[in-house]
Nucleic acid binder design. Structure first.
Lengths: 209, 209
DNA sequence: GTCTATATCCAGATAGAC
DNA sequence: GTCTATCTGGATATAGAC
């Protein structure tokens, strides 16, 4: 009943970082629910997620989910924010190459990683980068997470000398377009992913011209 | 009651090209229904189309729609095929430039036209180029229409000397990516559309290298 | 915290009278 | 060809017992 190693959380608040035994258990159940949501999203598309199914997947009845999340939109919100944090992590590894890397190598790596990230979880791709879920859009808080993530990407590019907005816009169109084509038209192959280097060469040549 | 200028259609068949008075009236009502479907799709997203709403929009009760279409999927199918025929028409005008045009000009024009086409009708864009409608995919017949349309586009590009599959794949990714970014992030502006020429220059320079 | 039962609302599709 | 009435099945969400 007492805090084990409390830092800030008050027992019983809605935070996910509580250290109280109860809140730890609660956080774990929430994580299980979100895991199950990704799993179901991979089966029926993220837009097809139903709370009944989700509850069954974690072995409870649908109304019990409301103990852990305010509503369905809150579940999407948490998944959305978590997805961008995973994108940050995936792109963070590229930082090692930034220092003395050829821009072509860095951009090629970034495109490659981005497409791989999208392929790694189709429902995550749908939730983060398409408007696949009707009647839902990220809450301001969740949206802020995505903005920060994209800002960091722009920051990394500016360190390569790519700073003109037109260039950034071209690159985002190219990269997201390649990912979209890959998932839509060759989900099990690498028809667009293997063009990452060619795309990077094309783009850098344009920036330098 | 008698055929007016019959060519082939038998009165009462499912064809849309009948010349019988009855079948002409039927074709017109079908067209009205499809018009209304595009209109509603612009309001709530093409995925949110409901047969009840659609019926109300054309002044009938929902079950009456089944006189004109087998089911909801058949409505989507006709809209899908019609959308690609409209794309053909939009791109057909570019043929005039093909003969002696600079490839950069032709590609820039094609990108520009494609983005404009997508912006011209968001629900059409959603239906043709995204997987926005859950539990629906085009029938083989409708799909064949889209394949023919894309084949024609590839044919036009090969006349410009762009024939390597890798180049076609890069161009489709770039073009669809620009359209997607335009609609998602600047629906009322031209932030990506105005980059059509820059994108074309970038692409052609790459092809020539 | 979990359950059963239910409220409320919506969907696509069919039966059968007129 | 159009209608009313209905079937069937789904959804999110809440009330209240335990």
């Amino acid at each position: 009943m007492d805090p084990v190693a409390g830092t800030a959380g008050t027992a019983g608040t809605a935070g996910t970082a509580g250290t109280d035994i109860r809140s730890r258990r609660r956080a774990q159940t929430r994580a299980e629910i979100l895991d199950a949501a990704w799993r179901l999203g991979a089966q029926d598309g993220i837009a097809g997620l139903s709370l009944r199914e989700l509850a069954r997947e974690v072995g409870m009845q649908a109304p019990s989910l409301y103990t852990y999340f305010d509503n369905k939109a809150a579940i999407y919100d948490e998944m959305f924010a978590a997805g961008f944090q995973e994108l940050d992590a995936a792109l963070h590894d590229l930082d090692d190459l930034d220092v003395d890397g050829d821009p072509v190598e860095v951009i090629a790596g970034a495109i490659e990683v981005f497409i791989a990230f999208c392929r790694d979880s189709v429902p995550r791709y749908q939730l983060l980068f398409t408007r696949a879920v009707p009647d839902w859009e990220p809450s301001p808080e969740a949206y802020a997470v995505s903005v920060r993530s994209l800002d960091r990407m722009a920051q990394q590019l500016s360190e390569l000398g790519i700073e003109r907005p037109e260039h950034l816009d071209l690159l985002t169109a190219l990269t997201t377009g390649m990912a979209a084509q890959q998932l839509a038209n060759d989900p099990d192959g690498d028809r667009w992913q293997r063009l990452s280097r060619a795309a990077a060469e094309m783009f850098i040549a344009h920036v330098r011209s």
